[in-house]
Design a protein around this nucleic acid. Sequence first.
DNA 1: ATATTATTTAAGTAATCACTTAAATAATAG
DNA 2: CTATTATTTAAGTGATTACTTAAATAATAT
Lengths: 104, 104
Amino acid sequence: MEVKTDIFHAVADPHRRQLLDLLRTGEKPAGELVEHFDLTFPGISQHLKVLKNAGLVKTRRQGRYHYYRVNPSPLRDIHEWITQYEQFWKGRLKKLGQHLGEAE
Amino acid sequence: MEVKTDIFHAVADPHRRQLLDLLRTGEKPAGELVEHFDLTFPGISQHLKVLKNAGLVKTRRQGRYHYYRVNPSPLRDIHEWITQYEQFWKGRLKKLGQHLGEAE
DNA sequence: ATATTATTTAAGTAATCACTTAAATAATAG
DNA sequence: CTATTATTTAAGTGATTACTTAAATAATAT
């Protein structure tokens, strides 16, 4: 039983991001996900475990199939962190904008 | 000479994120950054190198001081990736909302 | 029951990572 | 010129990572 995985770490791996991307169109059993990769079943299974520990996917079991679906709410943490830098590339404002431009 | 570092990887490390956060208030020489951590100078220097390879910081040299400043534009890649999931946590819409609720 | 299918868990490994101390580089100060 | 200060680069190490193959679990099909 592994402990809660850090969300930034979970998303740092390209294969794991691709897994999430695949799940954006809807839930899929593990086996269907594997087909998209040049990895073995256990390899994917371990990535899915990391995503699950980070809370980024949820599972539903139906018979021998384990359906995975994306749960993107933890991504909000990353989003919020990045938003602090958003003004830099958006407004291209300098120091003055830091206290003023709070409204959307 | 290390090759271009992946942006998601660069940002996955807490110390590196903290470095960027420290630089949000303005450029700082490496030595001043080190003070905020329980790490050695070379440790920080290596983290800064990763950030630089990822394009997240720029440097300016003045005498023996190396000033680092944040360059957040590469974060846009992460931001854009995450935005694809934004609707999930924002609208808390179910299946029906996927085609309809595009407007803010 | 037995075999098959879907998946996870276990165990092993090579590569990468985040640190350290020691040495190198480079600018300034005496 | 020498010593000091600021920083990087080199070299080494233990921990973590991303994979693999083999074994275990669990449901379905025969």
